[in-house]
Amino acid sequence: MSASRIAPDAKVMLKHGAGGRAMRELIQQVFVGDAKAPADGGIGLAAMDDGAALRVGDEWLVMTTDSYVVKPPFFPGGDIGRLAVSGTVNDLSMMGATEIAALTCAVIIEEGFPRADLERIKASISAACAEAGTAIVTGDTKVMGRGEIDGIVLNTAGVAFTRRVVPDCGLALGDQIIVTGTIGDHGLAVMALRHSLELEGELCSDVAPLNGLIRRALEAGGEGVVAMKDPTRGGLASTLHEMAGKSRVGIVLKASRIPVSPSVQATGELLGIDPMHAANEGKAVLGVRPDAAASVLAALRSHPLGRQAEIVGSCVAQRPGFVILDTGFGLRLLVEPEGELLPRIC
């Protein structure tokens, strides 16, 4: 573990929000502290899962919240509105709760933000809600002075009910790792735009609500689906590290099996960025018992958002907490990204 000496003048840095180790450590140290798990055997803050699960009668109430800032707010394949709905729907889905009861949405707007953009974002929120079969039932609006925030910030929270909660730590030896489609699309599309890299091509965010897709996987796999997580910030690499660490297994991946679109592959090569480090907003990682893997894979592929699903690896006893990549040439450790993704020259 990395040293946890905290200097009195320590500051929160961008890397603490980038989804990697630095972020997990900050959350652990500042927010989780000695938080206890809910008394009824549910999932609370300490689990640092995608959301919380509280016992209500014979069901679980699953809830989550997330804030969204994205520069720029509109990007190929989506916008901050679609992102805010999808992100929260996906966090609930990753807990096994695919029937989304309702969402909330709070909006903080910088003075001077174009009204037309706001309406465009609202339309996008509505469309994404319709896709996910849910609705915003309450909200809040604040306006801040110029320069006090950057454009627009959204926060969404969501609740859903389920009879079975799927944690992100349920992996056991032999379990198969499934990725529901191509990776890195969102992260590279947004980065190319943010740093004005002037790349022409088909880079496009994958942002989408996944509850329909996950419902199909759960119907097919039942109890055989033992762990789920969406590889957002930090990408597939961070997500797998977290799952391997919490489940105390090693994960071996086959590089040739990991779906990557040609445009993402090309951009990654050009900018020196591993697509496995880039964010996804419409993909999920599933840990599945070996005997359920084929049926879950088939179910995922029968859904429009899961056509390119693949079994990318499996869980092993060696090196618990590590993710090992079989490149086709040899084995290597997959490292977690540190901080924000940046174009590289070397």
């Binding site: 890299l197 002037e198 790349l199 022409e200 091509g201 088909e202 880079l203 040609p262 445009s263 592959q265 090309a266 951009t267 090569e269 050009l270």
Partner: peptide, 11 residues
Amino acid sequence: ATVDFFGIRRN
């Protein structure tokens, strides 16, 4: 020059 890098173009 406009150059194609395996599907992505850049100047």
